[in-house]
Amino acid sequence: MKVSYFPGCTLKNKAKELDVYSVKSAEVLGITLEEIENWQCCGGVFTTARDEVATKLSSVRALKYALDREQPLVTVCSACHNVIKQTNYAMQNDKEFADKVNRYMAEGEYNGETEVYNYLEMLRDMVGFDAVKEKVVNPLKGKKIAAYYGCLLLRPNSVMRMDDPENPTIMEDLIKAMGAEPVVYAKRNECCGGYISVESPESAKRNSNAIIANAKAAGAEMIITACPLCKYNLIKNGADIPVIYFTELLAEALGVKEDTNE
């Protein structure tokens, strides 16, 4: 199966692991991630204002690209996913906004037809965690892993619809499929501080520390995330357990981590 793939700015740069391992692992699971040609940065955050049009065009173009190929659009980075999914929702539900956007669309009209999946949803809904489990060659036995969702994957739930926004299980189910033990802790859906580390680093530090402390108190030996900014904030603010992308762990479990590094 082939899907349109939106990597996003950071995945081509500071978060290459997120990109490379995603593509490799998907291949093992029978899905080809076809990178969208000439994709442009999503902008990092979705502007909820209804009169912001230009900032959402790059997302609409990516969505239109997938529609033209009759493929679902798959994202990995939480931020890209949030921006693209929220933009798609606005295109479906806010006619006035969609009309404005379509005036800029040299590529042709778009009205929210494309289905947007995060890589985690792709694993759950297209591949199935049982199928993932079958492909695991290096089960991560005995590892106590805490999934960190942050805010962007789950909220606002009326749009994102990924999982129960207050007690999600999708990453925990992946951790189980990889043979490790998920650690559930309440702060896994609280914000790390995001871009606020530019404006007030202390705020980001306080939030990140509380998350790490909560995960460790629950027995976590490692934290996985889908978001480069979450990873940055947690590490910069003194995480004393490893914080890595879930794709790196997936590649390891599927046995494609080494050949990726070569």
């Binding site: 802790y185 309440a186 702060k187 609280e190 509380a210 402390a213 909560n214 108190a217 629950a218």
Partner: peptide, 17 residues
């Protein structure tokens, strides 16, 4: 009985230890 009534809402409960 000295019950502390607070006008407001709880936003998050985090079990820790």
């Amino acid at each position: 009985y000295g019950v502390k009534y607070i006008k407001g809402m709880v936003g998050k409960v985090t079990p820790e230890g």
